[in-house]
Nucleic acid binder design. Structure first.
Lengths: 337, 337
DNA sequence: TTGTAAGCGTTATCAC
DNA sequence: GTGATAACGCTTACAA
């Protein structure tokens, strides 16, 4: 591989001049500039990224930390984030934690190793205090999580309100024996939603059918499994708030298989408005989240923090969600074919 | 940020000794090793990745080039690849081309800039000859594409055979007016499948209903759109081979909406066995692809090529696919509730 | 066993 | 305008 030195020699000039041309700085006469271009062409020269990173103390790379990329919600966030980051000239490293705190810390180390200039956390596995320690190693943006005490940029929606809205909707549809189904019992995200859910229940004087088994649901399969358990409970549940559309879809699918009618016997609300919620039959009522806006804002703010490091100040961007009412909760009207 | 120099000074030792401890090499007595550990602890030292990369001429990073991460097939591939790569201590950069050849070249440059040690291409947008030029800058593994002339590692299934199997199945179910629907008309992948599709048609003396509009289908929406067009064609199509399950799902969904019965009026086969194909009602017949095996093999081979650079030799790993027969093609039996 | 010093490929500073 | 030269932080001959 040709180095800047080789180019300089070939062109009969100094490394400095070549460097100036590469970074198209002024103070190089046209003739020499041309000679440099020619030499670069001839030698097939490409600036070495590692050397640049070392010299400039900048990697132009960011990391996105998330549970698993196959969850459509995360994958959509990543799609938009990568696009945006790429537009700004940044590479994106993807970091799957599989909900493992240890793995998350491993990826956070990227910041201390200076392997990335900053990172976005979509979901958080560790105590915030643990994560916070990394913030002095580089900017961290939190996307879609609710950490009250985080002194950093935090982008998301009002999770509590969203869960409240969904739950009230279930109640208005006539549901009286509700269940709250989610992943990651102790995450802040789930806590916030649970608070909203309970608030709705209390306001309507409805007891919760909540149960520990309902806290491990992260995909279609777990949705199916949970429906199996729900069926065997004494007090037949008639309304479910699910933490994501995959789980909701699994529930609806399994319900139909078992002859449990949705929404007549069981109404279901999901979260995120993933494609699947729209395509299921019946279509699943869900909370629409402004993914594109959230993703873009996250990247925008992360890059701003990278390029002009200043504060460690909380900065919160909250976007609006929407309850999309579909057939999986529509007890009033017969589902049209 | 503390450097190795700082640690050395603090411990009253040389950079060399510290380096030895960091890379746990021999020839450091326990006492000094301990002193180094202590100093590192005390100063919160973390080795600088950029410096290491420059010195070692190695990045321990790979790139995955694909169209869009939101396609569940790609996202599943990436999930497994990242997991495997991470296990080997490699970071993964994700590169979305959006089917744009220019963007692909931009990402291939990562190899020449030495920003990654190697890359996996899932789908290819440029002429192979164009891509081939990058191969001397670092190893490239091709996953799920069929490039006959590629002298590199290539992992996949027999696309032609898979399309053939799917088409024969449609014909056996009684379909006589078939259509082939795919993205990327001129990709090698689509060409291979089309060959298999046509082979099945010819063997059964059936003319193709093929049409140019059927070559832009990459997601659910395009599937829906295409169904709209199919409906208005003179010669009513009764069987569709779709290049991926998203498109198939869009078609099935739109068909049901319009009162076209699947499979009675229109049978549909998809590709990849994505979750959605299983959850749709009717469930969609599809080609199951051994994603995990393909992804793992790709990473395995890429890392092998990185760690012991040798040949530019073609090396092909072909896995078995399976036709999963489901209700979207089951014309014989009434769909059970 | 330990340390000295060279060098990985850049870019910024400063002198000419 | 142009070019030495000194870093950036690390590893590895080679010496001691």
């Amino acid at each position: 591989m040709a180095t800047i030195e080789d180019v300089a020699k070939y062109a009969g000039l100094s490394r400095t001049t070549v460097s100036r041309v590469i970074n198209n700085q002024p103070y190089v006469c046209d003739e020499k500039r041309e000679r440099v271009f020619h030499a670069m062409q001839e030698l097939g020269y490409v600036p070495n990224s590692s050397a640049r990173r070392l010299r400039n103390q900048k990697t132009e790379t960011i990391a996105i930390v998330l549970p698993r990329i196959t969850n459509p919600f995360y994958s959509k966030l990543v799609e938009v984030m990568e696009k945006k980051a790429s537009w700004w000239g940044y590479q994106v490293i993807i970091c799957q934690t599989y909900h493992c705190a240890q793995k998350e810390l491993h990826y956070l180390e990227l910041l201390r190793k200076k392997q990335v200039d900053g990172l976005v956390m979509v979901a958080i596995q560790n105590e915030w205090t643990k994560v916070e320690e990394y913030i002095h190693a580089g900017p961290i943006v939190i996307c879609n999580e609710s950490i009250e005490e985080a002194n950093t940029v935090i982008v998301g929606i009002d999770q509590q309100q969203a869960a409240y809205d969904a739950t009230v909707h279930l109640i208005e549809q006539g549901c009286r024996r509700l269940a709250f189904i989610s992943g990651e019992e102790n995450s802040n995200l789930v806590q916030a939603r649970y608070t909203g859910y309970m608030k709705a229940l209390q306001e309507h004087h409805i007891p919760s059918m909540d149960d520990p088994i309902f806290h491990e649901a992260v995909d279609v399969e777990s949705g199916q499994t949970i429906l199996g358990k729900v069926v065997h409970m004494n007090n037949r549940i008639d309304g479910i708030f699910a933490g994501c559309d995959e789980v909701a879809a699994g529930i609806v699918y399994a319900a139909m298989k078992q002859g449990i009618r949705v929404p007549e016997d069981l109404a279901v609300v999901g979260f995120h408005n993933d494609t699947i919620s729209r395509l299921m039959n019946p279509a699943i009522t869900t909370i629409e989240v402004p993914i594109v806006e959230m993703a873009e804002k996250s990247i925008e703010q992360l890059i701003r923090s990278i390029e002009q490091p200043l504060r460690n100040k909380r900065e919160s961007y909250q976007f609006a969600h929407t309850l999309l009412k579909r057939d999986s909760t529509n007890k009033r009207i017969t589902v049209p074919m």
